[in-house]
Nucleic acid binder design. Structure first.
Lengths: 203, 203
DNA sequence: AGTCAATCATACCAACTGGTTGGAGGCAAT
DNA sequence: ATTGCCTCCAACCAGTTGGTATGATTGACT
């Protein structure tokens, strides 16, 4: 007869899940604790038992969401393939597939883009987390490309670190475009992106 | 002895200017009317005399800000140059120069990126404005490239509309990266971008 | 069975949100 | 000079914000 579930780990997970939806929808600043509490089906007291407040909730969510996401989408694929260009092409294909798999009106860009875009430089300590993610992301791509160059799988004339920024731009930019313009541009963008990556292969 | 300025057009401009700063800093949702009013040095009554409310203020700001900005940064340069690849390279150079000209801690990505990123699909009527801007942007790039192909200044093998999405991704992505990672990546990104555009030239 | 700390809910708060009101100050035409 | 209108302001409103205080319920351990 317990309405009290007494299941702290499940409650915590429900809160983070509800917060997730609020954050990617409205951004970190506009996210409302009351809405998070309501959608999670819990109460404010419960939330404040598990988290010290909004800032703490955001911080913990960032720390538990962004690294695994980056790892799943980029670090792990880059680490397992031995040809970075093949890996990135596959990552891009996956990204498009993931976007298209969600109905347009339910689509929200990846937290790696939306949330990062909504963080202000003065929003310590969130800004630090964002920067770490961004650096990890950039370094992973750059190192994979550099390694590919040593193995003669990537053209020797490019500068790995520079090309990495370029590639990340592509990934972030297409999410915003999909959000604003709809899915129709996705296949064309993908073809262009794959073709560009092919130009990085050795002659 | 009038503290009342009695200058409606100046007051309206002050409000929009103050709103501009609030919007690009916190996004559309988290923007606070009270802060806008305070920074503008006017009162809420005055704001509500000039605008019907927050939604109206945002709408009018969007309509008066985004189109001129898009025109200045993209449409006009694309229209005046007769070689679209030269034009885009110049646009990219300008974009980097503009970013670098602002101290990092005062930098906020262009409204064309940040604000567009903060609009939710269900945020009518803002979503319509965003989509129009995005379509205009995409079409301008695509048509310029297509025209360049006819004049043998752009490689005939590319698909103009597809390459346009690609190019816009680059522009949006680099602003987010600059915001999150700092300016150090900008020169490298620019070199990659220029080199990529060179690959679109006829053999 | 009784204790105890962890978990969660109820009710509440001050501060702030977007929004409203009535009227004061100034300008122009009469 | 008076009238009427536009511009703007101070004070206020109801609702919501993030955040608390306190007590009820629970499971684990004796």
């Amino acid at each position: 007869m317990s309405s009290r579930s007494k299941n702290p780990v499940a409650t915590r997970a429900k809160i983070l899940q509800s917060a997730h939806e609020e954050f990617i929808r409205y951004g970190l600043h506009a996210a409302r604790l009351n809405a998070i509490v309501e959608n999670a089906g819990i109460t404010k007291g419960s939330l404040f038992h598990h988290f010290d407040g909004k800032e703490d909730l955001v911080t913990q969510w960032l720390q538990e969401t962004l690294p695994p996401l980056l790892d799943e989408l980029w670090l792990s694929p880059l680490g397992t393939h031995d040809n970075p260009l093949d890996a990135i092409q596959k990552i891009f294909r996956e990204q498009i597939r993931r976007i298209e798999s969600v109905p347009l009106n339910e689509f929200f860009a990846s937290p790696l883009v939306t949330v990062i875009a909504s963080i202000d430089r003065k929003d310590e300590p969130w800004h630090k987390i964002r920067e770490e993610i961004q650096v990890l992301w950039h370094r992973a791509v750059a190192e994979a490309l550099a390694k590919g160059q040593k193995q003669k799988k990537v053209h020797s004339a490019i500068v790995a670190a520079e090309e990495a920024s370029f590639i990340i731009s592509l990934s972030m930019g297409i999410e915003l475009q999909a959000k604003a313009q709809g899915y129709s541009i996705l296949p064309g963008w993908l073809r262009s992106a794959l073709a560009y990556l092919d130009t990085l292969r050795p002659a």
